Computed example of a mutant assay.
Amino acid sequence: MRVLFVSTPGLGHLFPMVPLAWALRARGHTILVATASDALDGAASAGLSAVDASPGFDRRALIARLREEQPELLKKRLQMRLTTLEEASGFFARMTERLVDGVVDAAQRWRPDVIVQSQVQGAGLVAAGRLGLPLVEHGFGFARTPNISQKIFEKATGAFERHGVSALPESATIDVAPASMIDGHPSGWPMRYVPYNGGRVLPDWLLEPERRPRIAVTLGTIAPDFGGVDPIRRLIELAPSVPAEFVLATGSADLSGLGTLPPNVRAAGWVPLNELLPSCAGIIHHGGAGTTLTAAACGTPQLVMPSGADRHINAAAVERRGVGISLEPEVPVSAEILHRLLDDPGLMRTAAEVRAEIAAMPAPAEVAEHVERLV
C-alpha cells in the first residue's frame, strides 16, 4: 500500500503524524510526504521521503517580510484568540491554494492508495477528490474541527474547481487528544499521542542526574518568528528567586535581547521535549498543541502563556483538566505562580492521571490497521 501524507508547512502539523507514518512503514507500506518549507526538512529528518509541494515557499522569510512591511498584521496575529479553528478557515484556505497544485501533481504521479492529511489542510481534500481516494484527517490538538473542511471547501473554491472537484471526499478522522481534556466528544479513531520532536545528539548535562528541580521553557517552532522571546523576559528576571534550573529550549531564537542570563538559566537551543521533560518538574510554554500534548504524555505540570492562534484553546484544556495553569498575556508571571508549578501536589497528581490515560489509548500501530481496512 502507498500512503501519501499531506502536511501544512509547519512542524507543529507534521510532527504528530510521524509516528503513524513510521507504524505504516513498519507494516510494509510505502510512505511519501507532500509539504513545503520547514516541514519538508522535518519529514526528511524523520527518515521519510518527501516532495516539495510549493517550491520557493519559505515561511520564515514570509514572516520576516511581514514584520518589516506590515507590523500591525503580525501584532493582530499575536492577539488572535480563536475559540474554534473554523474562525481561521480563511487562512487555511489560502494555505490550501499555496500547496494544492503541487500536492495534486505528486498524487497523480505517485498514485497513492490513501491520503493522510493534517487536519485543516485542504490540499489533501482536493487530491483525494480528484483521484477518488479514501482520506484520513489526522488531528493535532484540542480544537474540535467538525466543520473546518466544509469551510475550506467554501473559501478555496478556486483550488477545488481548478482540479474538477465538486464535493468533499469521504473521510475518516484520527483524534490524538485524551478524552478527559477535550470540550466535547472524541472525533473518529482515538490514537495515543506519541511525542516526536525531531532527533538530536543529546547534551551530556541531560543524561546526568539533576541536582535541583528543572523547569523547561519553550516557545515552540512558530511563536518566536512572530513575537521573539519577549514572553519569557519577566520569567528570566524572576529565575534567581526560584530554587530551580530553567532550561530554555528555544531552538535558534535570538536570546541576545534578554541580556546576561542568571546562573540557574541554561540556554539549550533545540532539545527534543520528549527527551527533556522526563527530567523536569514543570514546563512553561506558549500553548502550542504539540507542546501541550507532549507535556501531557510525559506527565509534566504546565504553565501555559498562550500567544494567539489555537493556543488559547489548548491553554483552556490544560486549566480545565487541572494538569497546569493558564496565564493570560496581560497577567504577568509571578514568583508565586512559579512556586506553584513546582510544588502543587494537585497538578502533579492530575498530570500523572492524564499520562496514564494517554498511555492506554490505541497505539499508532493499531490505528495503522484501521487505515489498511479503509483502503
Results as ranks from 00 to 15, higher is better:
residue 170 E to T: 01
residue 234 R to Y: 01
residue 34 A to Y: 14
residue 309 A to H: 03
residue 7 S to W: 01
residue 295 A to L: 09
residue 127 A to K: 09
residue 112 P to W: 01
residue 370 H to K: 14
residue 312 H to M: 06
residue 363 A to Q: 07
residue 141 G to F: 15
residue 222 I to L: 13
residue 358 I to L: 05
residue 101 D to M: 05
residue 57 F to T: 11
residue 108 Q to E: 15
residue 53 A to E: 11
residue 325 I to M: 10
residue 185 H to I: 02
residue 36 A to P: 11
residue 314 N to Q: 09
residue 259 G to K: 02
residue 75 K to A: 12
residue 61 A to F: 04
residue 355 R to G: 01
residue 309 A to W: 11
residue 238 L to G: 10
residue 70 Q to C: 06
residue 338 L to K: 13
residue 137 E to G: 04
residue 148 I to M: 11
residue 108 Q to L: 06
residue 219 L to H: 05
residue 237 E to L: 13
residue 157 T to S: 15
residue 90 G to N: 04
residue 170 E to V: 00
residue 272 P to S: 07
residue 5 F to G: 01
residue 331 V to T: 14
residue 292 T to I: 07
residue 208 E to T: 15
residue 157 T to E: 15
residue 341 L to Q: 06
residue 181 M to P: 08
residue 241 S to G: 01
residue 227 G to L: 01
residue 333 V to W: 05
residue 46 A to E: 12
residue 180 S to N: 07
residue 203 P to G: 11
residue 114 V to D: 04
residue 83 T to N: 14
residue 95 M to C: 06
residue 262 P to F: 00
residue 147 N to R: 15
residue 321 R to T: 15
residue 302 Q to F: 10
residue 190 P to M: 05
residue 293 L to D: 02
residue 32 L to W: 14
residue 366 E to K: 13
residue 297 A to G: 03
residue 209 P to Y: 10
residue 115 I to K: 04
residue 344 D to V: 03
residue 48 L to T: 02
residue 261 L to A: 03
residue 230 D to N: 12
residue 9 P to Q: 09
residue 90 G to D: 12
residue 15 F to T: 12
residue 3 V to R: 08
residue 171 S to M: 08
residue 300 T to R: 03
residue 196 Y to C: 13
residue 56 G to L: 08
residue 301 P to N: 06
residue 297 A to F: 05
residue 181 M to N: 08
residue 351 A to I: 00
residue 353 E to W: 01
residue 352 A to F: 12
residue 57 F to H: 15
residue 122 G to H: 10
residue 136 V to T: 13
residue 14 L to D: 05
residue 134 P to H: 09
residue 63 I to P: 02
residue 103 V to H: 14
residue 268 A to V: 10
residue 179 A to Y: 09
residue 179 A to I: 09
residue 140 F to Q: 02
residue 121 Q to I: 02
residue 285 H to G: 00
residue 3 V to T: 13
residue 34 A to R: 11
residue 197 N to S: 07
residue 114 V to Q: 02
residue 50 A to Q: 08
residue 52 D to P: 01
residue 12 G to L: 14
residue 354 V to Y: 01
residue 304 V to H: 04
residue 5 F to C: 00
residue 207 L to H: 07
residue 6 V to E: 14
residue 169 P to R: 12
residue 83 T to F: 11
residue 306 P to T: 11
residue 14 L to N: 06
residue 320 R to L: 02
residue 169 P to Y: 08
residue 165 V to K: 08
residue 301 P to Q: 03
residue 370 H to Q: 15
residue 33 V to K: 03
residue 42 G to W: 05
residue 166 S to I: 01
residue 278 P to V: 13
residue 177 A to G: 03
residue 2 R to S: 00
residue 222 I to Y: 02
residue 31 I to K: 12
residue 217 V to F: 10
